[in-house]
Write a protein that binds this DNA or RNA. Structure first.
Lengths: 202, 202
DNA sequence: GTCTATAACGCGATAGAC
DNA sequence: GTCTATCGCGTTATAGAC
C-alpha cells in the first residue's frame, strides 16, 4: 500500500500513532549506540519502562521499526533534492542547497541517520526500494556536479571523487552534530560550504 | 602482555598463525557485509568449509577476532601519523602525507576498515585502549591543522570543521575503493588532496 | 495496553572422540 | 585440527489473562 506524492510512489502511507513514534525514537537512540543487530526488543522495551511483548501491540516486528526509520529519511532526501534540481540557479548554489539539506535533515534526527548509514543492509521487504532511492539520489547529485564541470563552475577532476568526498562528509554529520551542543545549523552549513567547495588551503 | 615498540606499548604481541589469519580475513569480509553483531561463528566457519567448534582451536572467542582486526589497524594509523608529525615539512605537506596514509592502509584492508569504523563499540577488553588511540590520533591531526592556520598556510575557519570534513572522507574510503577495480592508489591520493585541500570550485 | 508465560529457534562456547 | 553432540542462555514473537 503506497501513496502517491508528486510523481513518486512512497512507501510509508500511514502516520504512526504517538505510541508507535515513541517506540521508533527510543529504538533509534539504541540503534545508534550499538547498531540494529545488537539491540534487542527487550532493550527497547526496558528503555520505555514496559515489557517486550507489549511492543507488539503497536508494531508488527523489529524490522518494521528499522524500515520506518530508514525509508522516511531516504524519502526526505529524495524530495529535498527534487526541489533543488528544479531550482533555477548555478550548480555551485545547488551544491550549497544540498549541504543545507543534509545539515537540516541530520540535525533534526541524528539517531535515525546512524541507521540510514549503517543498518540499511538489514532491511528485507524494502531493501530494493531503499537501494533504488540511494542510487537515484547519487545519480542526481553526480549530474549536478558534471553540469558544473561542463559550465566551467567546477574543476575538471574525476566527478566520482568529488561526489564521494562531499557525500562522505555529509553522511558523517550525524556523528558530529550531537557533540556540538551550541551549534547553529546555518553557521555549520555555511562553514561546510566554504570547506567543501573552496578547500582549506589559503 | 604487550610489547614495546618505539615509545608506545602496543596491544598485539603475537603474530597470528596462518590458520588464525585465515579466520580473521574471512570474518572481516562477513563483518563488512553485515556488521559484527549479525555475523555468527557458524557463518564464519561455513565460509571456511569447517564447523564452528573447530574455530576455537585457533581463537579464544568471537571478540578476539574483532579485537585483532581493529587494534592492528588503529596501531598502523598511530605509527604512520607519528612519522608524519616528526617530518620536517609544511603543514599542507603533512596533510597530504596523512591522505596517502589513509589511502594506503585502507586499500590494503578495506574489509577491516569497515569494522574499525562501525564495530569498535563491541570491543570489551581493549575498548578503552582503542578509544585512547583514536583520541590521540584526532588530537595530533587537529594540532597539525591549527599549526597550519597559525603559519598562514590554512584558512582561518573552525579547525574542528576542517578536521571533521577531511577525516569523514578518509574514513569512508573503505566503501569506495573496492568499487573501483582499476584504481591507482597514488592517483586517488593526489586527486583527493586536490579536492580536500583546494576544493572543487574553480 | 500491558502483563505473564511460553513456544520455537539460534547463539557462543565446551567436552570428548577420532 | 576437525568432528559430533550438547549445554545454557538469549532471541523474536505469540497466546491469553487482566
Amino acid at each position: 500500500m503506497k501513496i502517491k506524492k508528486g510523481n513518486e510512489y512512497l512507501a510509508l502511507p500511514m502516520k504512526p500513532t504517538p505510541r508507535k513514534l515513541e517506540i521508533i525514537t527510543t529504538a533509534s537512540t539504541l540503534f545508534k549506540e550499538k547498531g540494529y543487530s545488537a539491540v534487542t526488543m527487550r532493550d527497547i522495551a526496558k528503555a520505555m519502562g514496559i515489557k517486550a511483548a507489549s511492543l507488539y501491540n503497536h508494531i508488527k516486528n523489529k524490522e518494521e521499526i528499522l524500515t520506518f526509520i530508514i525509508i522516511s529519511l531516504a524519502e526526505q532526501f529524495i524530495e529535498g533534492l527534487e526541489d533543488i534540481k528544479n531550482s533555477n540557479t548555478t550548480c555551485i548554489e545547488k551544491l550549497k542547497k544540498i549541504i543545507e539539506l543534509h545539515v537540516g535533515i541530520t540535525s533534526r534526527n541524528t539517531n535515525g541517520m546512524a541507521s540510514l548509514n549503517n543498518d540499511w543492509m538489514h532491511l528485507k521487504d524494502q531493501l530494493n526500494y531503499y537501494l533504488k532511492l540511494r542510487i537515484d539520489y547519487e545519480n542526481s547529485f553526480r549530474k549536478i556536479i558534471k553540469e558544473g564541470v561542463k559550465k566551467g563552475e567546477i574543476k575538471n577532476i574525476n566527478p566520482d571523487i568529488m561526489l564521494f568526498s562531499i557525500l562522505s562528509t555529509l553522511r558523517s554529520l550525524y556523528i558530529w552534530i550531537p557533540q556540538k551542543e551550541d551549534l547553529d545549523t546555518s553557521v555549520l552549513a555555511s562553514n561546510l560550504s566554504e570547506v567543501l567547495l573552496k578547500g582549506i588551503n589559503k
